[in-house]
Amino acid sequence: MLPVLYAIIVATLFPFALGPEHALLARIAGGVVLVTVLLAMLLALDNVFRGDLDDGALEQMLLSPQPLSVLLAARMLAYWLVTALPLLLVAPILAYMLGLQPAVQPVLLLALLLATPLLALLGIVLTALTAGTRRSGMLLSLMLLPLAVPIVIFAAGAVGAAQQGLPWIAPLAWLAAALALALVLAPLACATALRIALDT
C-alpha cells in the first residue's frame, strides 16, 4: 500500500505548488496522474528481487527445472497485481480531485491499463540487471527513464487528445502493440538479464 500512499501525497502536492486554479489543474491532471503512478511503481521496483535474493529463494528458482522465463512472468504479474492495480483504483479519484473532465476519465484509465503493465514488464527486466548490485534505487530510475519516455508520451498523448476532443485511439493502439510485444519478449529478456547479473 506504500506506493498508493506515495501517489496520493505527490498528487496532493501539485495544487499547493501550482495554485488551486481549476483550469490549469484540469489541463495538467492527466499528465500529473500518469507521472505520479509511474513514480509510485518505481518505488516498489527495487524490491522485486531483493527479498528472494536475500533469503536464497531466487537461487532455488534459478536452479529448478522449470523454465526461468515462466517463473519470472509470474513474478511480473504478481508485481503488477500488488503495485499497479491499487494505483489504478486510486488514479481516477486523484484525477477527479485535480479536475479532469469526467468524459476523459475512461481514456485515462485505459491509458493506465496499458501503460502500467508495460512499465512493470520493462522495469522488472532492468531490476533483474541490477540484481547483483547492492543498492540500485537511483540507478534504476536512471535506467528506466529512457524506456519510460515513449510510454509517458503515448499515454499522456491519448489523454491530452481526448481532453481536446480529438481522436485518441492511435496512441493507445501503439501502447497496446508495445504491450503485446513486451508480454512475449520481456520474460525472456528478464531471464537473460538475471543470469547475466547473477553470473550463471
Binding site: 533469503d55 532455488q60 536452479l63 527445472p65
Partner: peptide, 25 residues
C-alpha cells in the same frame, strides 16, 4: 543445493515452503 541461505520464505509456513519446493521440482 542447500546453501547458507536456505531459500525459505519467512512469511510462509513450513508446509507452504515445502509446497513451493514441490511446485518447482
Amino acid at each position: 543445493i542447500m546453501g547458507h541461505l536456505l531459500g525459505l520464505k519467512a512469511d510462509l509456513s513450513a508446509l507452504e515452503n515445502l509446497r513451493i519446493g514441490m511446485g518447482l521440482y
